[in-house]
Design a protein around this nucleic acid. Sequence first.
RNA 1: GCGGCUAUAGUUCAGGGGUUAGAACGCGGGUCUGUGGCACCCGAUGUCGAGGGUUCAAAUCCCUCUAGCCGCCCCA
Length: 461
Amino acid sequence: MAQIIKAIRGTRDLLPAETALWNRAERTAREVFARYNFGEIRTPVLEATELFARGVGEETDIVSKEMFTWEDRARAASEKPQSLTLRPENTAGVVRAYIEHKLHDTGQLQKLYYIGPQFRRERPQKGRYRQFFQIGAEVIGPASSGSESPLRDAEVLEMLAALLDELGIPRASAANEYQGWRLLLNSVGSSTDRPRYVAALREALLPVKDQMCPDNQRRADTNPLRVLDSKDEADQAIINALPKIADYLDDDSKQHFAAVLAALDACAVPYTVNPRLVRGLDYYTRTTFEFTVDLGLGTQNALLGGGRYDGLSEMLGGPRAPGIGFAIGEDRLILTLQALAELKAADEGELAPVKIDAYIAPLSPAQNAAALALARTLRAAGLQVEVGDGTFRLKKSFDAADRVARHIVILGEDEVAQQQATVKTFATGDQHKIGFDDLSATLRSSLAIRPTTLTFKEPTY
RNA sequence: GCGGCUAUAGUUCAGGGGUUAGAACGCGGGUCUGUGGCACCCGAUGUCGAGGGUUCAAAUCCCUCUAGCCGCCCCA
């Protein structure tokens, strides 16, 4: 027997039972984004490796060891082979498109959102896959369009709060034992603040480095900012004594951050300022944030992350175009929603599965053609319809119908001859004969099927 | 990339060197020829993750691989 082929490591199939939830989440996100005047952008899954090296940062873990990268062969002798990469995130691609299509020259603020797969070659775990999905958005434009305003930061954060609220994810509070979402916020400073701070950090780490865990010793050399969000218990005292980024912000950055917090207060969006929150991508400046959630996600409790990237466009060879954005881990969002649904089911009992409108059951193969024709009519009217096969016994048809549909439409010899279907409503047990021409209207209006408004008698044979 | 745990029916799981591998749910059929859900009866579940080794004998012990989960790293 031939070897079966399986989905490759870290990728997975989403079957209808799950995609229903994915679609609901995506629909909600699209609706919320539209209310804030965001339009959708779709960028290629494949980009030049150079884009991520320059945008995300050559030294970051993502670029240095987690990308799916290969050399595409040259098409002609005169052409050089090109290094291609499956995108590990989408912000760099959006900014590349912004520059490439000269959206800057419109002078307008661009509000763009995307939904799509991203790829990172990490060890798979719950909530962490090699092909994972992100729902993200970017606000970018020339400074004259207001792209640099703290209002943009606050608006994005407020929009995210609205989205999570609308998806039914509770806010963490003492009342629910902090099972819910929580916004963590920090400012990592401007592109001039940050190098000063990193230098100070390095200096402060030098004498204490040896006392820290091996991971932190390594970080102290490669990426000192990462020492700040270390979970190592023993190192916490040392970390708390390190210089604070807040003391290295220039006046502009300080005022900017204060304005963001003031706007969040005005919108009643709860947040926690965490001076140790840092991000793993080099392009972030000033406001950075993370939403965590304690439902359904194990150690991967970061539901979404984002921040400002005022210098990214220039890094990619474009004009100065400040911006802010975020990316939601859609897989993690779904895990959270599933955990929430389970909690609810434990409280209220299982929810009845959603059923389609009708199941057409021909009584013998002679009625198969008529059944398909009737299905076509009903479907054209917008009804959700399944069709059985006339070789099934009626008993089996009922069984199959009850599993998926609210009504069974029985089609025997008499029904076809009279152009009247026998329709039974599972919930009530009511059964009526309804003319083919009236069927879609009758099924559409649940009122008409209620016994109080219909006085059909049980058919007698 | 590192460490640990796990892999048996469609699903959740039990078993544990010795005839033919089990339960529940689910699935198929019947009792019941155009009226289901309940009940009762019958039936099929399967390369025991893959490959190799030890042994008279391996689903069981050992090794390698693969995949999943947990933690680390990192991040969404």
